[in-house]
Nucleic acid binder design. Structure first.
Length: 935
DNA sequence: CTAGAGCGCTCG
DNA sequence: GTACGAGCGCTCTAGC
C-alpha cells in the first residue's frame, strides 16, 4: 500500500493522551522494580498498543495509523479565553515522568507518534480526519471523547475502544440529540465544566438540542432569540450572546492546521522486534516481553530480578508474630538516630504518639513509637514519671530514668516527621498531628489506616485499631485498661512503667504498619483509591487546622442563660408537682409515665423495650389537649435540654489556654461519608426554636472580626433530582423555583400563585420523606394524618414522578445484588443488612436509598473543604466549623465580601470536574457578630 | 461504685 | 415496627 493516501485507504487515529489518563487511573500504582519509577500508565498503554496491533490484521485493517498527543498547556484557546481548562486538576506527580515514556513506547511499536507544541490532540486529529476524507479515504477515531464527535460523518466514525462500540451518526444523535454537524452548536450552549467552557448558564445538553433543533442552527437561534417562549431562557440567550459565541469557538476543532507531516507519513509499518523488545525490557514488563518475543519467534531477553524485594506490592504475610516483649525502648540519642536513619532510608514509617489524655488540645505528649517493618518497632519515652512517684496528693514529678530529654528527642524527630520524602503512617493521624503540632512539629506527608479502612469497609464495621487488628491481623492488642486501670483509680500514661509502655506503644505502631501494608494494595482493587486520595487523606490537615482554630464562645452569655433556665425550671417543676399531686423526678420518663398513664389514666400509653411507659414529645403534645401537665413537662424538657447540653456543658469545653471551644470531627463517624462532631458536638447547636437559637448568640467573632456562614441550598434534593433524573425537578432548580411549592403544585394541581402554606408544608414533608426512603407510616406520623391518606400522597407522588420510584427500586436492587451502594464520587457504602428479614429489612432498604444521596452531598462539601485553604489563602479568614451543608468562617470585617466570593465559588463548583451535575449548586451566605446573626 | 442500655432531644 | 444520618445528658439497673 505504498504511495499516496487516497481511495481505499483507512486511517486510524488514536487519542493517546486520553489513553494514558485512563490507564493511569484504572491501574494500580505499578512501579519498575529496579528503581521504583512509576510505570503503571506506560504498562497499560503498551498493553493497549499490543492488543491494538494484534487485533487489526484482517481485511479491514488500517493502512495508516497515528497516535496523537496533546503538547504544552497553552493553546490558542487560552488566548481566546484565559479561563479555558482553568479548573483542570494538576497532573498527578506519578504520571508526569510517564508521559515521555509513552511517546517512546509508540515509536517502539513503530507507530507514527504526532504532537505539536501548543496544540491539542483533538485539533491534530480533526485536521488529519478532514484531509483523509477529502482524499477519499476512511477514518476511524479510537476515542470516546465527546469533543471529537463533531468529526463524525460520511467516511468518519469513532470507536470507543473500551466498550468496543462504534459511534456513528446515530451514536452522536443519541448523545447530543443533534447530528455531528450541529454538535458544536449544542456544546456552545451547554458548555463544559471539565474544560471550563462557559456556555449558556442554566442550559444543558438536552435543552440545547431542543433549541438547535427548533431554530436550525446556533446562529439562527441567537439572531431570533427574541422568539424563545421561556422568559428566563430568552434573557440568557440575549444577554450571554458573546459568551456563547466564544464557547463555540472554544469547542470548534481546527480542521485546517498546518501540519509538518503528511498522511503518507502515517503508513502502517511492522514493528522491529529488536527495538520493541529493547524498550519493553528496559521497562521491565515481564509478561508483555515474553508474549511479544514468543509471537516473533525469538527468545525473550532476560530481565534481572531486583536486588531487594522490599517494595513487593503483595507483602506476603510471612510476618513475624506480634510480640510486645520484642520491641526496643529507645533511651539514648545514638539509638534514636539509628531508628530515624532507618525510617528515612525506607521512606515509610508508622508513627504513634502516647499522651496523658484523650483531648488532644489539652493533653501532654508522653512518648512516640515508630515501626519500620512488621515486628520492628520501638518506643521513645519522653515524659514518663518515676515509678515510685506516688499517686494522688502524694504524686511527685520525679522523672523516670532512661529517657531522652524531650526537646532534644523532638528536635531529632522533627526532620523525619516533616520529611516530604518519608510517608508517615498512623491510625487516626489527625490526633497525633494535633498533639505534635502543639510541640512545633507539622507532620507530613501522612497515610491513615483508619481512613483506608473507612474507604474500603465503610458500613461493614467500625474502624478503631482494636477492631481492625482483630479482623485483619487476627490479633488482640494489649487493652489500654491493662496499663491504666479504670474508674477512679485510673492513672495517666506518664505513670506507666517504661517496659509496659514500650510493649503497648510499639505494638500500636507495629499493628498500624501491618494494617497499612494490608489495606494500601486493596484500595485500587476495591476502586476506592480516588475516594481515599481526594476525600479522606487530604481532609486530615484541613480538619486539624479547623479544630485547632476553635471558635470563640462567650462564657458570660451562656452563664446568664443558665441562670434564667434554672429559675424557670424550678417554677415549672413546682407547677408540675402541684398538678401531679406528688413530687417526682420530672427528668425521669419512667416516673412521668406512671403518673400520666397509671395515676391519671390518660390515654395513649405505650410501653418501651424495658416495659416502661414511653413519653416522647409527640405523645405529650397530643396529651396536652387533655391536661395541663404534659405541656408543662414539655416546657421543662426544652429548658432542661438547653441548660444541661448547651449552656452548662459548653462552658466546660472552653479551653483555658485559647479561650475557645475546639470540637473534634470524626471523619469515619457516619457510614454515609458525613463527618460527626464530638467533644463537644457543634453540629447540633439549637436553631429551630426561638429560645434555642439564642444559644448561638454565645458563638461570637472576636473584636474586629465577623462570622460568615455559607450553606448549600437544598443540596440533597438537587442530588436526588440529578441521580434519579427527574426532568421536572431539575428544570425547577435551574429556574430557581421554590421546589416544595412546585412539588405541591404538581401533586395537588394547585397553581403556584395560589399555593397555601399548608399544602406546601405537606409537599415539603414528602420531599424529605423521599430522601429518607419514604413509608406511609413515617409520613403519616410526621404529618399527623391517617396512614391511608399519607399512602395516597405517596402514590400520587410516584405517579407524578415515576423516576423517583424507579431510582428507589433500582438502588435497593443494586444493594441486594452487591451488598453495597455508591455515591457519585465512588464512595462505597456497604449494606450488609440488606438481606435481613423482619423489621431490619425495612431499615436496611431505607438506609440504602438514603446513603447515595446523603453521601454524595457529604462528598461535595468535603471536596469544597479540601480546596478551601488554597482558595482563601491570603485572606484574613479562617474556616472554623462544618455542619453537613454549612461552612462557618471567621473573617476580618474588611474582607467579608472577598471571603464570601471565594468560598462560594469553591462550594458551588465543588462537584466539578469529576461530576457534572444536571442541576446548579446554590450557596446562601450570611454574616454577623455571632452565629445566630450569621446563619 | 461503675459501665452500659434506654430514652429523649438537638442538628442537617 | 418504620421515616435517613449523627452525639450527648440523664436515669436506671445489673453486676462488681
Amino acid at each position: 500500500m505504498a504511495g499516496n493516501f487516497g481511495k481505499g485507504c483507512h486511517l486510524h487515529l488514536i487519542d493517546g493522551s486520553a489513553y494514558i489518563f485512563r490507564a493511569f487511573h484504572a491501574l494500580p500504582p505499578l512501579t519498575r522494580k529496579s528503581d521504583g519509577l512509576p510505570i503503571g500508565a506506560v504498562s497499560g498503554f503498551c498493553n493497549m498498543l499490543h492488543r491494538y496491533v494484534e487485533g487489526n490484521t484482517g481485511p479491514d485493517a488500517p493502512t495508516h495509523v497515528a497516535v496523537v498527543f496533546d503538547k504544552g498547556s497553552h493553546t490558542f484557546r487560552n488566548d481566546l479565553y484565559d479561563q479555558y481548562k482553568a479548573n483542570r486538576e494538576a497532573m498527578p506527580e506519578d504520571l508526569r515522568p510517564q508521559i515521555p515514556l509513552t511517546r517512546e513506547a509508540t515509536e517502539a511499536f513503530n507507530i507514527a507518534c504526532k504532537e505539536i507544541e501548543g496544540f491539542e490532540a483533538d485539533d491534530i486529529m480533526a485536521t488529519l480526519a478532514c484531509r483523509a476524507r477529502e482524499a477519499g479515504g476512511r477514518v476511524t477515531i479510537l476515542s470516546s471523547d465527546k469533543d471529537l464527535m463533531q468529526l463524525v460523518g460520511e467516511g468518519v466514525e469513532m470507536l470507543d475502544p473500551m466498550k468496543n462500540k462504534v459511534i456513528d451518526r446515530d451514536g452522536v444523535l443519541e448523545k447530543f440529540g443533534v447530528g455531528p454537524e450541529r454538535v458544536v452548536d449544542v456544546q456552545a450552549l451547554a458548555g463544559d465544566s471539565v474544560d471550563n467552557v462557559p456556555g449558556a448558564p442554566g442550559i444543558g445538553i438536552k435543552t440545547a438540542a431542543l433549541l438547535i433543533n427548533e431554530f436550525g442552527s446556533l446562529e439562527d437561534l441567537l439572531d431570533r432569540a427574541e422568539e424563545i417562549k421561556q422568559p428566563k431562557r430568552r434573557q440568557t440567550l440575549i444577554e450571554k450572546r458573546d459568551q456563547i459565541e466564544l464557547s463555540k469557538r472554544l469547542v470548534q476543532l481546527d480542521c485546517d492546521m498546518e501540519l509538518p507531516f503528511t498522511l503518507d507519513d502515517l503508513e502502517v509499518k511492522e514493528p522491529d522486534p529488536e527495538v520493541l523488545l529493547g524498550f519493553l525490557t528496559k521497562m521491565e514488563f515481564r509478561s508483555l516481553t515474553k508474549r511479544i518475543a514468543d509471537n516473533a519467534g525469538v527468545e525473550a531477553p532476560a530481565i534481572p530480578e531486583p536486588a531487594t524485594a522490599a517494595d513487593a506490592p503483595e507483602a506476603a504475610p510471612d510476618w513475624p508474630a506480634i510480640d510486645a516483649a520484642s520491641y526496643e525502648c529507645v533511651s539514648d540519642m545514638e539509638a534514636l538516630h539509628r531508628w530515624i536513619a532507618r525510617a528515612t532510608d525506607l521512606g515509610t514509617v508508622a508513627v504513634d504518639t502516647e499522651t496523658t489524655g484523650l483531648n488532644e488540645m489539652l493533653c501532654d505528649l508522653v512518648g512516640v513509637s515508630l515501626a519500620v517493618a512488621p515486628g520492628e518497632a520501638c518506643y521513645i519515652p519522653l515524659a514518663h514519671l518515676a515509678e515510685d512517684s506516688g499517686e494522688g496528693l502524694f504524686a511527685s514529678d520525679a522523672v523516670a530514668e532512661g529517657q531522652l530529654p524531650m526537646d532534644q528527642a523532638l528536635a531529632a524527630l522533627k526532620p523525619l516527621l516533616e520529611d516530604a520524602a518519608v510517608m508517615k503512617i498512623g491510625q487516626n493521624m489527625k490526633y497525633d498531628a494535633k498533639v505534635l503540632s502543639r510541640y512545633g512539629i507539622e507532620i507530613a506527608p501522612i497515610d491513615d489506616t483508619m481512613l483506608m479502612s473507612y474507604a474500603l469497609h465503610g458500613g461493614e464495621h467500625q474502624h478503631g485499631m482494636d477492631t481492625l487488628a482483630e479482623r485483619y491481623l487476627s490479633h488482640t492488642p494489649i487493652p489500654i485498661k491493662e496499663l491504666l486501670g479504670t474508674g477512679k483509680s485510673q492513672i495517666t500514661f506518664d505513670r506507666v512503667p517504661l517496659d509496659k509502655a514500650t510493649g503497648y506503644a510499639a505494638e500500636d505502631a507495629d499493628v498500624t504498619l501491618r494494617l497499612a501494608l494490608t489495606f494500601k494494595p486493596q484500595l485500587h482493587r476495591a476502586r476506592v483509591t480516588r475516594v481515599y486520595e481526594t476525600l479522606e487523606r487530604p481532609l486530615v490537615p484541613v480538619l486539624k487546622t479547623m479544630e485547632m482554630a476553635g471558635i470563640a464562645v462567650d462564657r458570660g452569655t451562656l452563664s446568664r442563660m443558665s441562670g434564667k433556665f434554672a429559675q424557670k425550671m424550678a417554677e415549672l417543676e413546682a407547677e408540675i408537682h402541684e398538678l401531679a399531686g406528688e413530687k417526682f423526678n420530672v427528668g425521669s420518663p419512667a416516673q412521668l409515665g406512671d403518673i400520666l398513664f397509671e395515676k391519671m389514666s390518660l390515654p395513649g400509653g405505650k410501653r418501651g423495650k424495658t416495659g416502661k411507659y414511653s413519653t416522647p414529645a409527640d405523645v405529650l403534645e397530643d396529651l396536652a389537649t387533655e391536661h395541663d401537665l404534659p405541656g408543662r413537662v414539655l416546657d421543662w424538657r426544652q429548658l432542661s435540654k438547653l441548660k444541661s447540653t448547651y449552656t452548662d456543658a459548653l462552658q466546660e469545653h472552653i479551653n483555658p489556654d485559647t479561650g475557645r471551644v475546639h470540637t473534634s470531627y470524626v471523619q469515619t463517624g457516619a457510614n454515609t461519608g458525613r463527618l460527626a462532631s464530638a467533644d463537644p458536638n457543634l453540629q447540633n447547636i439549637p436553631v429551630r426554636s426561638e429560645e434555642g437559637r439564642r444559644i448561638r448568640e454565645a458563638f461570637v467573632a472576636p473584636e474586629g472580626k465577623v462570622l460568615v456562614s455559607l450553606d448549600y441550598s437544598q443540596i440533597e434534593l438537587r442530588i436526588l433530582a440529578h441521580m434519579a433524573g427527574i426532568d421536572a425537578l431539575k428544570e425547577a432548580f435551574r429556574q430557581g423555583q421554590d421546589i416544595h411549592a412546585m412539588t405541591a403544585s404538581e401533586m395537588f394541581n394547585v397553581p403556584m400563585d395560589q399555593m397555601t402554606p399548608e399544602v406546601r408544608r405537606q409537599a415539603k414533608a414528602i420531599n424529605f420523606g423521599v430522601i429518607y426512603g419514604i413509608s406511609g407510616f413515617g409520613l403519616a406520623r410526621n404529618l399527623r394524618i391517617p396512614r391511608a391518606e399519607a399512602q395516597g400522597f405517596i402514590d400520587r407522588y410516584f405517579e407524578r414522578f415515576p423516576g423517583i420510584k424507579q431510582y428507589m427500586d433500582d438502588t435497593v436492587a443494586f444493594a441486594q445484588e452487591h451488598k453495597r451502594v455508591e455515591t457519585l464520587f465512588g464512595r462505597v457504602i456497604h449494606t450488609p443488612e440488606i438481606g435481613a428479614k423482619g423489621p431490619r429489612a425495612g431499615f436496611a432498604k431505607r438506609a440504602a436509598i438514603n446513603a447515595p444521596i446523603q453521601g454524595t452531598a457529604a462528598d461535595i462539601i468535603r471536596r469544597a473543604m479540601v480546596r478551601m485553604p488554597e482558595a482563601i489563602e491570603g485572606l484574613p479568614a479562617k474556616m472554623l466549623l462544618q455542619v453537613h451543608d454549612e461552612l462557618l468562617f471567621e473573617v476580618e470585617a474588611g474582607a467579608v465580601d472577598d471571603l464570601i466570593g471565594a468560598a462560594r465559588s469553591v462550594m458551588e463548583g465543588a462537584a466539578e470536574p469529576v461530576v457534572k451535575l444536571d442541576v446548579p449548586l446554590v450557596v446562601d451566605a450570611g454574616q454577623g457578630a455571632n452565629w445566630a446573626e450569621a446563619h
